[in-house]
Design a protein around this nucleic acid. Structure first.
Lengths: 219, 219
DNA sequence: GTCTGTTTCAAACGAACGTTTGAATTAATG
DNA sequence: CATTAATTCAAACGTTCGTTTGAAACAGAC
């Protein structure tokens, strides 16, 4: 069955082109040319361009979200009645997105850029990201809340959004704009950035909320 | 001179459409239809669509960046030899972007979304944002460094990027996706978010860098 | 080998886009 | 008022896009 070959080829090239040029600018003609398949194959296999984008996205986001839940489950099982340490929660959320089990570091970065695009670019894909996200969001919200009972639920939600912003900001900026690189190589940089983000976000979560509560806690 | 009227009309509508639909999807035909001007007027006054986008962007970013510098100057003059308090630096950076002196809160949010788009969408506008940004970046980097001498320059730069990510994350997400609104009204929400971000980012900047230094400080 | 359903292919369709053109209109100048 | 420059306008240009079409190539089943 050669059908699967074609599907995979299209998906591979599409995610590459979207990461590189963006959703709107990555045309089907570019994709099929690089993939060596016929133009009509996209609509045959995926129905439409939107269907292709959705397929590209789903292929990666589902394993990542599953891994997030899996890690959080393990942490909570280990902690028992105790709340899970803050850094561990953050790590279980961020790590699956940063260390997707991809052979090629180049491709890993490609996927990260893809997620950044999805998050930022089109209305539809943005909606998709958030919908795909809502159950995960609630799950982690509860975990954060238990670890930081001082914070109001609304404040926890805000700080989760800040965490997302921090994460996406590292995903969307093309490498050539990075003024301050920590290293030349790519994959160790990701490792470093990952720990940087955890330290930054964890401190942000622990920030004193006095004064913010009064303003932001009526719900 | 009716020429200025036309220019302004185009700029106003363009920034509205870009904020609403994005750079790629906001077509010149949409813009001129809503603005009540001729299609060719855009190319006459701005040369090209890219020229229009650039004009839309520059119209707002320049005053904001000037205000940022102005506030930082004032803070440093006041502090004398002392380093400027961390929260003050962050505030002088964020506040001008959040409280542009715009009458209409609706338009304020529109501009914020516009910046989010510029930051995330097309390669060209992204490049523009970063170029426009580099002098500001260096200026604030020095201020942060003076206040937090424990951190390496590279670490300061990273955390500034996290700050940017946090800021942009609040700019780019359409209101209909916000699950946890703190209030129904729009403009007080912005005030609250603003203080939330400062508290979060300040804590992030102060995060313990032990262990990160060794990994991230070879430069 | 023949038949049946699946997959590929070249070609074209219709729509939307940014841009250009050249005439018409308006404003400014002497 | 006449002349010149600046601005607006309707119309069209040339591309590119996502999608559709119908025939050709291919697959596996009998």
């Amino acid at each position: 069955m050669s059908s699967e070959k074609t599907r995979k080829k299209i998906l591979d090239v599409a995610e590459q082109m979207i990461a590189e040029h963006g959703i709107g600018r990555a045309s089907l003609r570019m994709i099929v040319a690089k993939a060596g398949v016929n133009l009509a194959a996209v609509n045959y296999h995926f129905g439409s361009k939107q269907g292709l984008i959705l397929a590209v996205f789903k292929r990666h986001i589902d394993p990542i979200n599953n891994e997030r839940i899996r890690r959080l489950d393990a942490l909570e099982a280990e902690a028992g009645e105790q709340p899970v340490p803050l850094e561990k929660i953050i790590e279980s959320f961020l790590l699956p997105a940063f260390q997707m089990k991809l052979k090629d570091p180049k491709q890993r970065q490609r996927i990260m850029r893809l997620f950044g695009r999805m998050h930022a670019e089109s209305r539809e894909s943005q909606k998709l990201v958030f919908e795909e996200f809502s159950t995960i969001f609630q799950r982690f919200h509860a975990a954060f809340q238990k670890t930081l009972p001082i914070l109001t639920p609304a404040l926890v939600a805000w700080r989760m959004r800040f965490m997302l912003g921090t994460m996406f900001s590292m995903m969307i900026v093309p490498p050539e704009f990075e003024k301050f690189k920590l290293s030349e190589d790519d994959s160790p940089e990701l490792e470093v950035v990952f720990h940087q983000i955890i330290a930054f976000v964890a401190a942000g979560f622990r920030a004193d909320a006095t004064g913010l509560e009064r303003k932001g806690a009526e719900k």
